[in-house]
Nucleic acid binder design. Sequence first.
DNA 1: AAAAAAATCACCCGTAAAGGGTGATGTGAT
DNA 2: ATCACATCACCCTTTACGGGTGATTTTTTT
Lengths: 208, 208
Amino acid sequence: MKNNIRVVIIEDDHIIRSGYEFLINAVEGYSVIGTYWSYENAVKEIFSDHPDVILLDIELPGANGIEVIPKLKKLVPHSHILILTVYESENLIFSALANGASGYLTKNTSSAKIIEAIKEVVEGGGPMSVNIAKLVIKSFQKNQDSPLSKRETQIIELIRNGKSRSQIARDLFIDLETVRSHIKNIYIKLDVNSRADAIKAATDNRLI
Amino acid sequence: MKNNIRVVIIEDDHIIRSGYEFLINAVEGYSVIGTYWSYENAVKEIFSDHPDVILLDIELPGANGIEVIPKLKKLVPHSHILILTVYESENLIFSALANGASGYLTKNTSSAKIIEAIKEVVEGGGPMSVNIAKLVIKSFQKNQDSPLSKRETQIIELIRNGKSRSQIARDLFIDLETVRSHIKNIYIKLDVNSRADAIKAATDNRLI
DNA sequence: AAAAAAATCACCCGTAAAGGGTGATGTGAT
DNA sequence: ATCACATCACCCTTTACGGGTGATTTTTTT
């Protein structure tokens, strides 16, 4: 267990920034060792901070917050990045996680929860606010009443994996012509006429 | 806020089953109104239970737990299914979520946390044990040192979406031959020679 | 028991796409 | 000055794709 957790805050709003700073410094074993109001400043100086955790406002004006994540990761690879945001946009969250963020907190998160999140992330867990967890779970859930049959679903998944008709036929031990029939039926049901459109329709409707 | 939460337990181990039953019944506002030791029994009788939450052991002998989830969902669509498991297999978890489970708890979860999870799921949140959250976050994180360039990554993503060379060329406003060059380079870097293999390699290594 | 949906296979057709090889050019970072 | 990147060019052959129109059999639903 670490006895002094070094936190950096990147956030343009002065009120929020000093609020978090005060809050975190008030807790035994946690210190804010740097605050920044822009990505440029942060990227320039964060290396010397050796932070354990970075609280990162993802919606700073005039810059793409997502793209900052890999840059920070490169500068201080062992730091954990916790995203702060007011929005709970699905895409934003998933992009942030994909780009190296360790967790995600909305700005209405209570102070106790923020400390808890910092602690969890330092100790190797993955903090997620309940709303985010809900989003993530939802993103995993398939549409329960898909228009596609089992076989058709299986086949569109193989199509998504880039397989050709003949590869699919081999994989499923069925005839090439049978695969064609299934694909034709999938196209009719999804009202498309190409693999790309079928993948898009199936993905958009969470059929796969 | 519901004042009596109806819980059903599906679990073959008698000790664990009655343990949970006792535990949940002891809490004000929570009642276990059915326990089953096999999927068959559960599927036959669960309709009349009108459960709010189903605790489902996913690893019952001699049956595929994942496939039971959609069946239960069909019988009692408004119930939330919480998976209980000893393993934290990534695939198992994601399949369960994809098939309609609302959350996932490992069997070492404390009794207080189980009650909390039931409460959260009934109130519309998504419960996740810390370990699961970690797994999920990890599943979102791309490989930070991909061998592929930005352009190449962009292109393999379009390939995964089923787009043809010419569609990619149109999407990116570049020449068809340029797309070909990129794809060739991707194939070389990933040591493959087909779209399907490239998608597989890229997915396995979290490049996309 | 009857009807509907799903899964299987067949053969017609033409166009489009895929993959291998080899090479060139400009740019931007180190 | 070198290297990775991004761009475009033309050679070639083989495979895949999508539309149309059918049939048979099994499974599921009513």
